[in-house]
């Protein structure tokens, strides 16, 4: 029952995607493989091309099993300290993403609390918060990284700041909405108790805001990983998943690119999954109807 409701739909979609992917890999790699075989001077047939499209070492679009194989080879058999280990690079990115997530969430929550309590801030601060998101992170990241680099700040912190920049917005917006969620009735009720502002905040606004906060956190978690990766690109790609993406594209290593992409996706999915699990725990404690 549970399997049919939860896992089955996901597996069906995954299977459909895999089929489409294989077809696309065959179509996209066909010409390259055919040319290569022709240059080798050997005799070859359609089946040889077909097999080649799914096993070529520098394909335009690698087949799923090739990516999984690359992912395996760059994690399990390698020591984590190896320069080729995706575990090493994944950890470097994750570290920056997590620090950035913490900073961004803290800043977003603080901004929301300030906006909710100081009426004037809503009008003065909100336009800036929204404007900040109109700047593409791809344009901002190199400026920030280079500027901080000249100040001697390198490594984790500049990357974390870019990740934080992407986390801040969804959390600030969601939290502002959540803290303002209690209806007039509930606020009137607290007023008849002559509750203090702090009591209204902790007993009414904060519990009301949690569903909104979790929605914001999930967007922020995915954003943090993207931010950390983007921030790894401008510095000439020393380490991190961003570095693997960049060096992969320098040298036409599509397998390496796709393996790094998949690793990044798995990082994001894990973070979002952890948040979803936390949300379920919180919901259970708060009596949310299953």
């Amino acid at each position: 029952m549970r399997f049919r409701e939860t896992a089955l739909p996901v597996l069906v979609v995954a299977a459909a995607l895999a089929v489409l992917w294989y077809l696309a890999a065959i179509a996209l790699n066909w010409q390259v493989v055919a040319n290569t075989l022709a240059r080798s001077g050997q005799h070859f047939g359609t089946w040889d091309i077909l097999a080649g499209t799914l096993g070529y070492n520098r394909p335009l679009l690698p087949a799923p099993h090739q990516i999984l194989d690359e992912l395996w080879r760059s994690t399990v058999p390698l020591p984590v300290t190896s320069r080729r280990s995706l575990v090493l690079h994944g950890w470097i990115t994750l570290e920056a993403a997590l620090v950035g997530f913490g900073l961004g969430v803290a800043a977003g929550v603080l901004a929301a609390v300030a906006i909710v309590h100081i009426r004037a801030l809503e009008r003065s601060l909100m336009p800036w918060i929204i404007a900040s998101q109109a700047i593409p992170v791809l344009a901002l990241a190199p400026i920030v990284i280079v500027a901080l680099g000249t100040l001697g700040l390198e490594g984790l912190l500049p990357k974390a700041l870019i990740a934080a920049y992407l986390c801040f917005f969804p959390v600030a917006i969601a939290m502002t909405k959540g803290l303002n969620a209690p209806d007039l009735l509930a606020r009137d009720l607290m007023r008849t108790y002559s509750a203090s502002r702090a009591q209204v905040f902790w007993k009414l606004r904060v519990p009301s805001s949690l569903p909104f906060l979790f929605a914001g956190l999930k967007i922020a978690a995915a954003g943090a990983v993207v931010g950390a990766i983007v921030a790894e690109l401008p510095t000439g790609a020393q380490a991190g998943l961003g570095a693997r993406l960049l060096s992969g594209s320098y040298y036409g290593q599509t397998l390496q690119i796709w393996a790094a992409l998949l690793a990044a996706a798995m990082l994001s999915a894990t973070l979002v999954g952890l948040l979803a699990a936390t949300e379920r725990l919180v919901n259970r404690r708060m009596g949310v109807r299953a």
Partner: peptide, 26 residues
């Protein structure tokens, strides 16, 4: 004042007993 509104206005995340203790906590 003990004020009863048209809607119960119970806080959905609190059990009934902690809804009743809400004014006492305040």
């Amino acid at each position: 004042y003990g004020y009863v509104f048209q809607a119960p206005a119970l806080l959905p995340w609190r059990r009934i007993e902690s809804n009743v203790t809400l004014p006492l906590e305040v």
